Simulated assay, not measured.
Amino acid sequence: MDEECVERAAGMILEARQVVALTGAGISVESGIPDFRSPGGLWTRYDPLLYGTYESFVSHPERFYEMAQELNPLLDDAKPNPAHYALAELERLGKCRAVITQNIDNLHQKAGSAEVVELHGTHRSGHCMRCGRKFSLEEMRALGSEADGVARCPDDRATIKPDVVLFGEPLDSRVLSRAAELATTSDLMLVVGCSLEVYPAAALPEYTKRRKGKLIFINIAYTHQDHLADLLCLGMAGEILPA
């Protein structure tokens, strides 16, 4: 770990008036949830075109539920790591306004963060695709069919869709609007565990930069947006953030 980088990051956080964090899959890897795109990740075993698009869910929901059978135990067992707790502590101290996350794992909430803007939704709830009735994760599991694993609404037998954003599905406009507001009104953004490959999330650091805000990137690998960063810290977020 680069001690000089950590000291500079701490100084920038102390000087900032409005801090927001943007987190991606990298922050949760240390909690045992593999990056979907990395070697051995979910998309190497399940073709995202067949298992992860909105169109495929509508036509073959059993494929998504099959994949969820593998993913759910990982999400159930995962615990927040020091990076999650560090961001929650920054919020408690009045330094971090909110966390914008691309993750669906609920780990920021478990760590104690109060405002978590979930760009890609959550696996902990769902809704009937016909009548709109809401369901908790526990209810969806109880309603899963023994034949194909698909949870169906008890009112009309329509498919229940978990509240995760699939490929080809638009983000919730209210969630995206809040994320954009936070990015444009913050004078420092912490970009943690983000490859910055997936839009519109990848555009958020540019929003902060355009308003003369500063960027700290904390990643284990380089990204194509590193030239925007005022400070680049390479390493594990769970080691850098708590320091």
Rank of each mutant, 00 (worst) to 15 (best):
A229Q: 05
A111Y: 07
E70C: 01
L204T: 03
I33G: 09
E91K: 08
L22I: 02
E181P: 00
P39M: 03
E138C: 07
N106H: 14
V58C: 12
P154K: 06
G121I: 15
I13C: 02
A98C: 13
L49P: 00
L234H: 03
L74G: 03
R130W: 11
A9F: 07
L14A: 13
I13M: 11
I13P: 01
L204N: 09
Y51A: 12
E115S: 10
S195L: 12
E30T: 06
E118F: 07
G235Y: 04
T44P: 00
Y222W: 01
A183D: 11
K212S: 08
G193Q: 13
G41S: 09
L42F: 14
P162T: 10
G11P: 00
D2F: 01
E239S: 09
L166R: 15
K161D: 09
K161W: 14
E89I: 11
R178E: 05
M140F: 13
R133M: 11
G24E: 06
I33L: 14
E15M: 01
Y207L: 15
T101I: 11
G24K: 04
L190P: 00
L87P: 01
D35W: 01
G132V: 10
K134Y: 11
R92N: 11
Y51D: 12
Y207R: 03
T185W: 02
E239I: 13
L107G: 09
A68H: 04
P242V: 07
H123A: 14
A183S: 15
M67P: 00
A98P: 06
A180C: 06
V29D: 00
A114R: 15
L42M: 14
S177T: 10
F64T: 06
E138L: 14
M140A: 11
L228E: 05
D105N: 09
E169P: 12
Y199L: 05
H108G: 12
H84M: 10
T185N: 13
E118C: 05
T23P: 00
V58Q: 15
D47A: 08
L119W: 12
E181T: 06
L22P: 00
Y46K: 10
L166N: 05
E118I: 06
S136P: 08
F36H: 07
E146F: 12
R157Q: 14
K161G: 04
L71K: 04
T208S: 09
G168A: 11
